[in-house]
Amino acid sequence: MKLASVATAIALLSPALLTAQVDQRLAERVDGPTLEVMTVILRQAARVGLPSEPLIDKALEGSSRGAPHDMIVAAVRRLFDGMNTVRSVLGPGAGASELNAGALALRAGADVEAIEGLKLARPGGDLTTPFGVLVDLVAIGVPAEDAGVIVYGLTEKGHTDVQLLELQRQVVNDVINGYPPMIAASVRSGIPTAAPPPFGDVVAEGVSAAPQP
């Protein structure tokens, strides 16, 4: 009975403690209305078991950039929803960095099936880097679906984080040198993408002249 009472008291008061701890960091950097909304969001995060740090970081980034209240709240809520979706796929053991990167991957156009595929491709392993490489490939112009296929294929073959990042670096260099992103990514990875090369043989010849991985 006493144990139950203590557990109940702590459960009721833990969100208050969490809020009090983040208040000090956020209170110095965000305005009152933003702080109020952040308090609610962080309570929700604590309740569903999501990490608070990425959410706080997002709010602090907005504050440092002088973003208005609405923009900060929208960005934080978007991140919350993304992390929640990724966590539902990866499970409660997923780390903050992994959830953050997974949320970005979803936003970049990867679907839930792609997240599930990566989880199966690297069972029990951290997926922060695969998610990050997927996002970065999309950022340089590789279609999200193709980026997902490439990263899944390499991860499934057992490529390490270092190898994935090296591939990304090579593709970026190829793109800087004028090669189409999708072709560069497909050739460098050795994984054919879903869509046929849009530029025909001329581009393929150009890519074949690039340094091989």
Partner: peptide
């Protein structure tokens, strides 16, 4: 460094991934 894909606050950031070794 690779640019961040999304711009939530009207500026461009860069990204860095520190891999597991």
């Amino acid at each position: 460094a690779p640019p961040s894909l999304f711009d939530d606050f009207g500026g461009t950031s860069s990204t860095i991934t520190v891999p597991e070794v």
